[in-house]
C-alpha cells in the first residue's frame, strides 16, 4: 500500500504522545506540547490553507492565526472529535472567511521551491510542484480542498467529510474527479508511478 494507514485508528491519539494528550497539556500552559502539535501539523495545515487561499503570505498569516486560536481554545478543549478534524475545521473556517472577504483578487498558484537536499535526490520537485500547483489551482475549490485533505493532510474520507460538511461519498467523488482532471498534466512525472509499483 502506498499510503500510511488512515490516522483514524483509535489508538493514535490516546497515548501519552497522542494529539489529545498534547492538546490537553497545551490547555495547561505546556509550551513544549504546543510546539509538538505545531510541528506535527505545520505542513499539512499550511498546505490545506494554501489550497483554499492560494496565496503564500495569506496562507502563512492564516496558519499562524489558526494556531493562535488553537492556543486560546486549548484550556476549554473537550476531546469530542479528533484533533486533526478540529484543527482542519478551524483552519478551513478562517480561510473561507478570508477568501470571502478578499474575493475576486487574482491569485498566483503557490509553488514551494525545492530545497537543495531534495534537488540532490534527482527528483524534479520544482517541476512537480509548479505543475501540481498550476493544476490544483485550476480545480474547483471543493475538489482542491478534498484532494489536499486526503493526500497532503492524510485525513481519512470520514474526517474530510466532517471538515467539509459533506457526505463521505461526495467527498470521494470530488477527489476522484479532481485526480482525473490532474491526470494529464501529471503524466510526465511517470517515473514516480513506476517507483510505486516496484
Amino acid at each position: 500500500m502506498l499510503y500510511d494507514p488512515p490516522i483514524d485508528s483509535t489508538s493514535s491519539t490516546q497515548g501519552p504522545d497522542g494529539d489529545t494528550d498534547l492538546m490537553l497539556r497545551c490547555g495547561g500552559g505546556d509550551r513544549a506540547a504546543f510546539e509538538e502539535l505545531l510541528k506535527r501539523y505545520e505542513t499539512r495545515l499550511l498546505a490545506f490553507i494554501r489550497s483554499i487561499v492560494r496565496d503564500r503570505g495569506d496562507a502563512e498569516d492564516l496558519f499562524q492565526e489558526t494556531f493562535l486560536r488553537v492556543h486560546r481554545a486549548a484550556p476549554r478543549y473537550v476531546p469530542k472529535a479528533r484533533l486533526s478534524t478540529f484543527l482542519h475545521t478551524i483552519a478551513r473556517n478562517l480561510a473561507l472567511n478570508f477568501v470571502q472577504k478578499k474575493r475576486e483578487k487574482p491569485v498566483q498558484p503557490v509553488v514551494e521551491p525545492a530545497t537543495a537536499e531534495e534537488a540532490g535526490r534527482g527528483v524534479d520537485l520544482d517541476a512537480l510542484r509548479t505543475t501540481l500547483a498550476a493544476a490544483l489551482s485550476a480545480l474547483p475549490p471543493n475538489q482542491r480542498e478534498a484532494i489536499t485533505l486526503r493526500y497532503v493532510s492524510e485525513l481519512p474520507y470520514k474526517r474530510i467529510a466532517e471538515v467539509m460538511g459533506a457526505p463521505m461519498g461526495t467527498v470521494a467523488s470530488w477527489v476522484h474527479e479532481g485526480l482525473k482532471t490532474l491526470s494529464p498534466s501529471m503524466r510526465k512525472f511517470g517515473p514516480m508511478a513506476g517507483e510505486e509499483e516496484r
Partner: peptide, 11 residues
C-alpha cells in the same frame, strides 16, 4: 496521482 499530490503538495 495521489502520491504525486502528496509529494508535490507538502510545503
Amino acid at each position: 496521482l495521489g502520491a504525486l499530490v502528496a509529494k508535490g503538495g507538502l510545503p
